[in-house]
């Protein structure tokens, strides 16, 4: 053992543990989804002014929601699994919100990332769950640029599932009344989802 030993060991340990701590946000997250959730929670972030079109063909942007909080999920209309569950959850959310006035102030928005989803497809998806614009819009980006900007800024990763469909995040995104992405919620039972959303969006 030389005097270099403790120095080298301390060096390796501090660099190594420091990097691990950095990568896990202080040993709190291990996945990229978790890391994003945490960073949004700490510092809400602006959303892009991308052009969208809803199931009625009405163009709009996220900025149009200013003043009203909105819950967003990402879907594609042919999706047999996650997006159906998300659709059910959102439908149930609307029912739950129906009762009280405070809740009714939250809008819903389902954004399709599938370029092949045309207006008819959006409408069909919406009808399956009783979605009515503008309180619950089923929308698609107006063009490729807008789609990329949206996916990027919400941190949504879409990969092919090998069966002609997609695999994607199933989180619910809360954009608050100031038009900032304020929280990323794990998909959960609708009542708990609502409680969490209300807490963030309309405190």
């Amino acid at each position: 053992m030389t005097r270099g030993f403790p120095v080298l060991l301390a060096f390796v340990l501090s660099i190594g543990i420091g990097t691990l701590a950095f990568e896990t946000d202080g040993f709190r997250v291990v996945t990229s989804a978790g890391a994003r959730q945490l960073s949004i929670e700490r510092a809400p972030q602006g959303v892009p002014d991308a052009q969208l079109v809803d199931q009625d063909g009405t163009p709009f942007t996220l900025a149009d929601y200013k003043g009203r909080p909105v819950l967003i999920d990402f879907i594609y209309t042919r999706c047999p699994t996650i997006c159906t569950a998300l659709g059910d959850d959102f439908a149930r959310l609307r029912q739950l919100m129906g009762g009280t006035r405070a809740h009714a102030a939250i809008d819903l928005l389902s954004i399709s990332f599938d370029p092949t989803d045309n207006r008819a497809a959006l409408r069909l998806y919406g009808d399956r769950f009783g979605a009515k614009a503008p309180r619950w819009r089923i929308a698609a980006a107006a063009d490729q640029r807008a789609r990329a900007a949206l996916l990027h800024s919400f941190g949504v990763v879409v990969i092919p599932d090998g069966l002609g469909g997609f695999i994607h995040n199933d989180a619910v995104y809360v954009v608050d009344a100031q038009g900032r992405l304020a929280r990323i919620l794990d998909s959960d039972a609708p009542d708990r989802l609502l409680a969490a959303a209300v807490q963030v969006a309309a405190p």
Partner: peptide, 15 residues
């Protein structure tokens, strides 16, 4: 010399 018994090196490997 500093890599006594290989400990710092193996710590780097583990981390």
């Amino acid at each position: 010399d500093a890599d006594w018994l290989g400990i710092p090196g193996i710590v780097a490997v583990v981390l």
